[in-house]
Write a protein that binds this DNA or RNA. Structure first.
Lengths: 243, 243
DNA sequence: TAACATATAACTTATATAAGATATAACACA
DNA sequence: TGTGTTATATCTTATATAAGTTATATGTTA
């Protein structure tokens, strides 16, 4: 009988992964920061450089860290060029890259409905912020978003803060609330446009729309955002890959 | 100036990856087979075991190989339990796992239309097989598929062969034609059901449907299948994840 | 003896450490 | 401006141990 027989056995590199994740949760290193070098981390955790390397390899594969040869290893941030399209899967059919512009419709404080509350691990009725916005490509409205985040994690969020922020919403969440989105699950359906959506998206009622429901997670797989996007997919598609 | 400065420089493990892929293309190891052990491959390629290991690690991360501790490393196959849902992203909203049944509608030989030909690297008008089928969950039709594959790569394919085959279509392609699908790209839109789809899917005309266009690739990133699926997403969703 | 259980050996991948060479980037300094 | 230094990640090899799988040998028992 040795420690490896124990049911709670985890390889060293996995324990290092957890320790690094805990430092990310604690905010010791924030998005965009460089983390210590592999050798420094090895000394700190009392393991070999190779073991730290394997832990970082996996975190880099999950897009939580980013390695740059010669420079160091950095905490992934949504305030980076490459990140702009990381969670935006709607793209032009002709392949031309284009980033949408956002028109903020409303920011309200509400009681969480059952649907989003359960997915965010909140009690139904817990306080949330509800953000509504309209994304346009080439000035043409394409996506109507409704976004729910727990008020407790986003204290002080308001309309003006978002309106004045130049970058993406996730970049905003990072810089103002220290919450980095690292993973998301989406459920997609085809639905008919109702009267409100039809008007905002400039489409006839009953127009088929993509309904994209998302739950996004931060470090430690903690769900912190629910959103529903309604997308008019004329000349645009939701693009994904599998292997 | 050394070889590492050369523009064509590739790390050793990457070259090993290519060599392994070439053996897969050549059919030296077929889906389901065990490949030689890391030590044997290291001897064969005249590199260290660690380098072979890194190459296999990456191929395993791409779901091309599968490692099984104590047993060996195997070529991924669609004729495996775990593979059944690998390329099927439509799932019940309540999360209950369920595999659809298939009704084959037709298998015809046709001239490739421009759309699928260009995506499959064929001339427009090249000979293809066109497979139409209807997938049902709990006996309820949900997905209408139209599938194009190059006739040159699927010689002798016909109606009866598919009908008599017990497993999935990709499993069938593997066992009868030695073509393994390892990756796919999908473009998704919301569209209205036309008269034909409406009847087959038991929905009213103009019902919103998910239209999922796929190109699937085999070893060496060679495109070998185009398909269009029309999905009725009542109580079902297209599920995906991102990070 | 035949059937079954157990121990052992030989194989596999998985984990961990160490060491040296190379590529890339930033910076100091001539 | 350019050149060398330094610090970083990257690549490659080597070695050792751990752990999972399978076949075979060796018992033990009916």
């Amino acid at each position: 009988m040795n420690i490896h027989s124990s049911p709670s056995f985890r390889p060293l590199y996995d324990q290092i992964k957890i320790l690094i994740t805990q430092s990310l949760i604690a905010g010791e290193w924030r998005p965009g920061d460089a983390i210590p070098s592999e050798i420094d981390l090895a000394a700190r955790f009392k393991v070999s450089q190779g073991t730290v390397r394997k832990a970082i390899d996996e975190l880099a594969a999950e897009n939580i860290l980013i390695r740059r040869q010669g420079k160091g290893t950095f905490v992934a941030s949504h305030s980076q060029e490459r990140a702009s399209t990381r969670f935006l899967r709607i793209a032009r059919d002709d392949g031309v890259a284009e980033y949408p512009t956002s028109r903020l419709l409303s920011v309200t404080r509400e009681r969480a409905p059952e649907a989003s509350a359960s997915l965010l691990d909140l009690r139904t009725g817990a306080s949330i912020f509800c953000i509504k916005r309209l994304l346009s490509f080439e000035g043409v409205p394409r996506i109507l978003d409704e976004i729910h985040v727990p008020a407790a994690s986003f204290k002080g969020l308001d309309d003006a803060m978002i309106r004045n922020y130049p970058g993406s919403l996730y970049s905003f969440f990072e810089s103002h609330f220290g919450i980095a989105m690292i993973r998301a699950e989406e459920h997609i359906k085809a639905v008919k446009a109702g009267p409100i959506e039809a008007e905002l998206l400039h489409v006839p009622q009953d127009q088929p729309l993509l309904r994209v429901d998302r739950v996004a997670f931060t470090y430690g797989d903690r769900p912190v955002e629910w959103r529903r996007g309604l997308c008019h997919t004329e000349r645009f598609s939701y693009v994904t890959e599998m292997s």
